[in-house]
Write a protein that binds this DNA or RNA. Sequence first.
DNA 1: GGGTTGTTTTGAATAAATCAAAACACCGAG
DNA 2: CTCGGTGTTTTGATTTATTCAAAACAACCC
Lengths: 146, 146
Amino acid sequence: MTSSIPTVRDEASARLRAAGLKVTEPRLAVLDAFAPGEHLGADDVFRRVSRSLPTTSPQAIYGVLGALSGAELLRRIEPAGSPALYEIRVGDNHHHLVCSSCGKVTDVDCVVGEPPCLAPSATNGYVLHTAEVTFWGQCPECQAAG
Amino acid sequence: MTSSIPTVRDEASARLRAAGLKVTEPRLAVLDAFAPGEHLGADDVFRRVSRSLPTTSPQAIYGVLGALSGAELLRRIEPAGSPALYEIRVGDNHHHLVCSSCGKVTDVDCVVGEPPCLAPSATNGYVLHTAEVTFWGQCPECQAAG
DNA sequence: GGGTTGTTTTGAATAAATCAAAACACCGAG
DNA sequence: CTCGGTGTTTTGATTTATTCAAAACAACCC
């Protein structure tokens, strides 16, 4: 008899299947590596996944991260000066606050009231699909550290 | 007798000096490489500078670009998926429109009326100094190309 | 003009990510 | 349940953008 209580893994499996992706251990482990609000680089994810799946290769991590962000189960951001970061919060278009000193990234909700701050003064003929906003500043810890 | 008519080079020299930087041929050549509205990568700059100064090394270009953007004579941007780009328009905080298909970058003026769109919903204790906005879309040429 | 300091050259090294081919595993069909 | 096709992961090498370090050199203040 198998349990009928849905687990976190079941949920992740369902999301993978819904996206048309095969359910594999590395993919489940990568999804499991992300806590809400975290922004992890490929190397961070590799380290975490390695704990539960020690045979996983870095290239597999790149493959999984690419597949998951292609399927919009992860969002990929690339703050200037940083390697690519991934987060589990998808589907809304929230923005980011990056510390110029330590690189820490914090989510911030959309700027002004209106649909996603998508209003440049002129579009120059471009058909827009995304407005990406990055705020730069110094986080409380770095302020305290001088 | 030397000419008393100020040249483009004189002007660039003055800007370098005002920034506390020594005036060198590579630096003048790099400043000269930028037309208004252009966004050039280090390799583009290297190619252009090589025409007038064939002995210049790529590392010199990196050094010059670093010095000039540190002195705010150039601005450095890093759209996701692209190597670093530099532009000669500095001092205002304008934003960018990037073509998802071909990577072309176009300047756009500040989004809404208020000083530089600098209003996230919450600052989380950060002291902000910049708001960077990148619009993603498809440029007219890429639309035409399907 | 000469010395100091900052800049550029020369040469090597690094980090992040991608490519390619072979081994492997998921999962639908039977 | 097993087989087979397709998608995934592994293994290993490669690329691109960038940085580091030391020596040669050039700008510029006195």
